[in-house]
């Protein structure tokens, strides 16, 4: 174990997996000579050479599709979006090609590809550079969607994603790259996809949180503990496939649940989780499932407005108290 940043953990995962499998290559804007717009790919060009680490023109649709084509014939591309905001340009290839190729070819063409990059809210970059995209991708069967919240999860899940035979959308939270944590150094350390992690155990209320909201939920749980409310914090880690069983087990124990997310609420992942809880644990609910989401507006630039747009500890504390009828 070593304490490193999420950025370094991701870098380790990329380096280890590219050394492990010659068919893995990394492609994206500024991944090579610039050393990564967020330094996640730092040093990889030197270590693996320009054949494996490839700078692209700013042409997201093009290189996303190129990756899918390469995956059709046996390569395992890692396509980096400088931020997931730009993946919107590439959604035709991600959704119409990557997600559907296996199915519409009757099982003949699997697409082992990872689309990764930072997503979610960033710091004061306004509407087009600060948004959560996971509900878009999680909507489509054929894609897997992963969102780590700790350096260890980031490393273990990225390694598994690269080894997976299906297209994986791997969304790193831009604000969390500098977060530090213990990370195993074993090159065979991986974390299965589709497995939620109980980040804190509790008895009175469940908070389901992912990505940026996990540390927020843990802080809220600390405060609530002092108020006599014991919170369980569950991080699904993989949005699709979703480990709903772990969430439902927790809800059966606590009878109350708050789903936290920084994304917009409408048609969001929290809406889906809430629905699944309703379908599977209705008789165990003592209060309606409560969502705490980012506000339903484009992200503003002004610092004070931006802070208001993203859920904070106080909102989570209030939500847990509300479902606890306190």
């Amino acid at each position: 174990m070593a304490v490193i940043t999420m950025r370094e953990a991701l870098n380790q995962a990329l380096r280890e997996e590219m050394l492990r499998d010659q068919n893995v290559f990394l492609m994206g804007e500024e991944v090579a000579e610039y050393q990564g717009a967020y330094k996640v790919t730092k040093g990889l060009l030197e270590a693996l050479g320009p054949k494996r680490v490839i700078d692209t023109p700013i042409t997201e649709l093009g290189f996303a599709g190129l990756g899918v084509g390469a995956a059709m014939v046996g390569l395992r591309p890692i396509i980096e979006f400088m931020t997931f905001n730009f993946s919107i340009l590439a959604t035709d290839q991600i959704i119409n090609s990557a997600a559907k190729m296996l199915y519409m070819s009757g099982g003949q063409f699997k697409i082992p590809i990872v689309f990764r990059g930072p997503g979610g809210s960033a710091f004061q970059v306004s509407s087009q550079h600060s948004q959560a995209m996971e509900s878009w991708f999680a909507y489509f069967p054929g894609l897997k969607v992963v969102m780590p919240s700790t350096p260890a999860d980031a490393k273990g899940l990225l390694k598994t994603s690269i080894r997976d035979d299906d297209p994986v959308i791997f969304i790193e939270q831009e604000r969390m790259y500098g977060n530090k944590g213990d990370v195993p150094e074993d090159p065979e350390f991986t974390i299965p996809l589709g497995l939620a992690d109980v980040k804190r155990e509790g008895t009175d209320a469940t908070i389901v949180a992912r990505s940026l909201m996990v540390p927020v939920a843990l802080k809220a749980a600390e405060q609530l503990e002092k108020q006599g409310i014991s919170c369980e914090v569950i991080d699904p880690r993989t949005i699709r496939p979703l480990d709903i069983d772990t969430i439902v087990e927790s809800v059966k124990k606590t009878n109350r649940v708050v789903v936290a997310e920084e994304s917009h609420p409408f048609c969001g992942v929290a809406a889906e989780i809430s629905m699944e809880i309703m379908e599977r644990a209705f008789d165990y609910l003592d209060a309606p499932v409560k969502r705490v989401s980012g506000v339903d507006v484009p992200m503003p630039y002004a610092k004070n407005l931006e802070a208001l747009a993203i859920p904070d500890v106080d909102q989570l504390v209030a939500a847990v108290r509300e479902v606890s009828y306190i």
Partner: peptide, 24 residues
């Protein structure tokens, strides 16, 4: 009545109509 309360009442044989809710 909350779903959980409904189930608890059914299991314990409590008549919900005799209760006064303290929730919202």
């Amino acid at each position: 009545v909350s779903p959980l309360a409904a189930r608890m009442a059914a299991e314990a044989g409590v008549d919900l109509r005799s209760l006064s809710g303290t929730g919202p």
